[in-house]
């Protein structure tokens, strides 16, 4: 059995994950959820003096904003769009008959105005159209995110939570802020016993054009990840990412700095389920048996 599948079985046996009959989607047990929320509070403590504005969006984004964001150019294979029935009673009858016969009922569905959120920071940029205050903005966002990549690896869920801090300002502020977070995050993870390593990374861009986008992203060191082996030693899992978008969102959504330049953006994201899974992987399935040093940090 693959390591990933064995880890998944251990997590299910311990009651940490509850299978839902579809790869990459699980209920979370009490200890799993408590650990995740404790880690979330730990992040908040580390960032309490930063002055970030907290906003919580539901796990969807306005379809028009999504279309403008450019996500479909880069990741058409990961996006999930919300569809719903919008037909006549006769068409409803056809829908029920098709479902009853085990057929394909997608033709009865119509696209709605909502797309599942692909990353917690996506809903924030469209709200910032216009001119930023002098020192730019800093946001704290947290959301379930969806990516269509079914897998037996518990560390590759289709729907998972992401806590992010997002900096919107000029390049001279945004880049050092991102680099500060790489160091801070290493300290945070070391204190809870996770052997994270920082690495230049690329997003999983689609197709041949995507190879070029990935090469560009690496050549410019736009993305860093902190990785930890979870299901595999050879290909460790990213539990955090640090992304510098340059002017992409600033130009797409018409955001300017107080000097009138196109705003630059960066985000720092914690994969909340992945961090939690790493904790179970490294410290065992029983939270009450975790090292005191780790318990003290998370539970105080």
């Amino acid at each position: 059995m693959e390591n990933a599948e064995r880890l998944l079985l251990d997590l299910v046996d311990a009651g940490h994950l509850v299978p839902m009959g579809i790869d990459g989607m699980y209920g979370r047990g009490a200890a799993f959820e408590d650990t995740l929320l404790r880690f979330d509070a730990y992040i908040s403590r580390s960032a309490k003096d930063d002055g970030a504005t907290l906003v919580r969006f539901p796990p969807v984004i306005n379809r028009r904003d999504f279309e403008r964001s450019g996500y479909l150019k880069s990741f058409p294979h990961l996006a999930g769009t919300v569809f719903s029935f919008d037909g006549t009673p006769a068409e409803h009858q056809h829908l029920l008959e098709t479902v009853e016969a085990g057929g394909d009922w997608s033709a009865t569905q119509k696209m709605t105005g909502a797309v599942l959120c692909p990353a917690a920071c996506y809903p924030i940029y469209p709200t910032l159209r216009g001119t930023l205050p002098q020192n730019g903005r800093l946001f704290d966002v947290f959301s379930y995110c969806f990516r269509h990549e079914p897998s037996k690896d518990p560390a590759r869920m289709q729907i998972f939570r992401m806590r992010e801090f997002v900096r919107i300002s000029d390049g001279d502020s945004v880049r050092p802020w991102r680099n500060m977070w790489i160091e801070r995050a290493m300290e945070l993870l070391t204190a809870i016993g996770l052997p994270a390593v920082s690495a230049v990374a690329n997003d999983p861009f689609f197709g041949r054009g995507g190879r070029m986008l990935a090469a560009n992203q690496r050549a410019q060191e736009l993305k860093f990840e902190l990785v930890v082996p979870i299901a595999s030693e050879e290909s460790p899992t990213a539990i955090m990412s640090f992304n510098y978008h340059q002017e992409h969102f600033g130009s797409t959504f018409g955001i300017q700095t107080s000097d009138g330049a196109v705003a630059q953006t960066a985000c720092v994201g914690f994969g909340m389920e992945r961090v939690t899974l790493a904790l179970f992987k490294y410290h065992g399935m029983r939270v009450d048996r975790w090292p005191d040093s780790v318990r003290r940090v998370l539970w105080g």
Binding site: K73, M212, L213, N216, H248
Partner: peptide, 11 residues
């Protein structure tokens, strides 16, 4: 030239 523009140039 943006990264996405360079993909279109390539194609």
């Amino acid at each position: 030239m943006t990264s996405h523009a360079s993909v279109n140039v390539m194609l």
